[in-house]
Amino acid sequence: IDAAQIVDEALEQGITLFVVNNRLQYETSRDSIPTELLNKWKQHKQELIDFLNQLD
Protein backbone atom coordinates (compact mmCIF):
# COMPACT_ATOMS: atom_id res chain seq x y z
CA ILE A 1 0.00 0.00 0.00
CA ASP A 2 1.30 3.46 -0.77
CA ALA A 3 0.52 7.01 0.22
CA ALA A 4 -1.46 7.75 -2.95
CA GLN A 5 -3.76 4.80 -2.26
CA ILE A 6 -4.37 5.94 1.30
CA VAL A 7 -5.17 9.49 0.16
CA ASP A 8 -7.56 8.13 -2.49
CA GLU A 9 -9.24 5.85 0.03
CA ALA A 10 -9.77 8.78 2.38
CA LEU A 11 -11.21 10.91 -0.44
CA GLU A 12 -13.63 8.12 -1.38
CA GLN A 13 -14.91 8.27 2.19
CA GLY A 14 -15.25 12.04 2.12
CA ILE A 15 -12.05 12.84 3.98
CA THR A 16 -9.41 15.22 2.65
CA LEU A 17 -5.87 14.75 3.94
CA PHE A 18 -3.42 17.64 3.90
CA VAL A 19 -0.27 18.86 5.63
CA VAL A 20 0.17 21.96 7.81
CA ASN A 21 3.60 22.73 9.25
CA ASN A 22 4.71 19.18 8.43
CA ARG A 23 1.81 17.71 10.40
CA LEU A 24 -0.84 15.49 8.89
CA GLN A 25 -4.32 17.03 9.09
CA TYR A 26 -7.72 16.14 7.72
CA GLU A 27 -11.03 17.76 6.85
CA THR A 28 -14.33 15.94 6.70
CA SER A 29 -18.03 16.37 7.26
CA ARG A 30 -18.20 12.86 8.73
CA ASP A 31 -18.89 12.34 12.41
CA SER A 32 -15.99 9.97 12.86
CA ILE A 33 -13.05 8.47 11.03
CA PRO A 34 -12.98 4.69 10.60
CA THR A 35 -10.39 3.14 12.92
CA GLU A 36 -8.89 1.20 10.04
CA LEU A 37 -8.13 4.45 8.22
CA LEU A 38 -6.68 6.10 11.32
CA ASN A 39 -4.38 3.13 11.81
CA LYS A 40 -3.17 3.35 8.21
CA TRP A 41 -2.50 7.07 8.66
CA LYS A 42 -0.44 6.36 11.77
CA GLN A 43 1.49 3.52 10.14
CA HIS A 44 2.32 5.55 7.05
CA LYS A 45 2.40 9.04 8.53
CA GLN A 46 5.78 10.14 7.21
CA GLU A 47 5.08 8.71 3.73
CA LEU A 48 1.79 10.58 3.65
CA ILE A 49 3.42 13.84 4.74
CA ASP A 50 6.14 13.47 2.09
CA PHE A 51 3.59 12.59 -0.59
CA LEU A 52 1.24 15.46 0.23
CA ASN A 53 4.15 17.92 0.42
CA GLN A 54 5.14 16.93 -3.13
CA LEU A 55 1.63 17.74 -4.37
CA ASP A 56 1.79 21.34 -3.20
Rank of each mutant, 00 (worst) to 15 (best):
L38R: 06
I49K: 03
I6N: 00
H44F: 13
I49F: 04
I1S: 10
K40N: 05
I49D: 00
L11V: 07
K45W: 15
Q13F: 15
F18D: 03
D56W: 09
T28W: 05
L38G: 03
E9D: 06
D56Y: 10
S32H: 12
N21I: 03
P34F: 02
N22T: 04
I15D: 00
D8I: 14
L38I: 12
P34R: 03
A3Y: 11
L11A: 12
L38T: 06
E12A: 12
E9S: 05
L11G: 06
Q25M: 15
Q13W: 13
G14W: 04
E27M: 14
K42D: 14
T16V: 14
G14H: 05
V7Q: 02
I6F: 06
D50A: 13
I33H: 02
L38D: 03
L11D: 04
F18W: 09
N53A: 09
H44D: 02
Q46M: 08
T16M: 12
Q13A: 13
F51Q: 02
A4I: 06
E12Y: 08
R30V: 07
E47H: 08
H44Q: 04
N22W: 04
T35G: 11
P34E: 04
T28K: 03
Q46L: 07
Y26E: 01
E36F: 10
I1Y: 11
P34N: 05
A10P: 00
L55I: 13
S29K: 10
S29F: 09
Q13K: 09
I1M: 13
L48I: 15
I49T: 04
L52T: 00
L37C: 05
P34S: 06
D31T: 07
L38M: 10
V7H: 04
Q13L: 15
L55H: 12
Q46E: 10
K42R: 13
L11I: 08
A3Q: 03
R23D: 15
I15N: 01
Y26P: 01
Q25E: 13
W41S: 01
V20I: 11
E27S: 13
E36Y: 13
H44P: 00
N39R: 10
W41P: 00
A10D: 01
Q5N: 08
E27G: 07
F18T: 14
L11Y: 09
T16N: 09
V7C: 04
Q43D: 12
K45M: 15
S32W: 11
T35R: 11
T16K: 15
K45I: 14
N21Q: 08
Q13G: 06
V19P: 02
F18E: 05
V20W: 10
A3N: 02
I49N: 01
F18Y: 13
N21K: 06
R30K: 11
T35C: 08
N39D: 15
V7W: 06
Y26T: 03
Q43V: 10
I49W: 03
I33L: 06
V19E: 02
H44G: 03
L24V: 05
Y26V: 06
A3L: 13
Q54D: 10
Q5V: 10
V19Y: 04
L48K: 00
F18S: 12
L24E: 01
R23A: 14
Q25F: 15
Q25A: 11
P34Q: 04
Q25S: 09
Q54C: 07
D2C: 12
P34G: 04
I15A: 03
F18P: 01
L24Q: 01
D8V: 14
L55E: 08
L52F: 08
D8A: 15
D50Y: 09
N21C: 07
R30H: 09
L52E: 00
L24G: 01
Q25W: 13
Q46R: 09
R30Y: 06
Q43G: 05
K42S: 14
Q43T: 11
W41M: 10
E47M: 12
W41A: 03
I6M: 12
V19A: 06
V7E: 01
D50I: 11
I6C: 04
N21T: 04
L17V: 03
D2M: 13
D50C: 05
Y26W: 15
A10I: 02
K40C: 08
N53K: 11
Q25P: 00
Q25G: 10
S29A: 12
E47C: 07
D8C: 10
V19F: 03
N22L: 05
A4N: 06
S32E: 12
N22R: 04
A10E: 01
Q54W: 12
K45S: 15
N39H: 11
I33M: 04
N39V: 11
P34C: 03
H44Y: 15
Y26G: 02
E36H: 11
N39C: 07
Q46V: 08
Q25V: 14
F18K: 14
D31C: 07
Q43Y: 08
E27L: 13
L55D: 07
H44C: 05
Q43L: 13
D50M: 10
D8K: 15
E12M: 14
F51E: 01
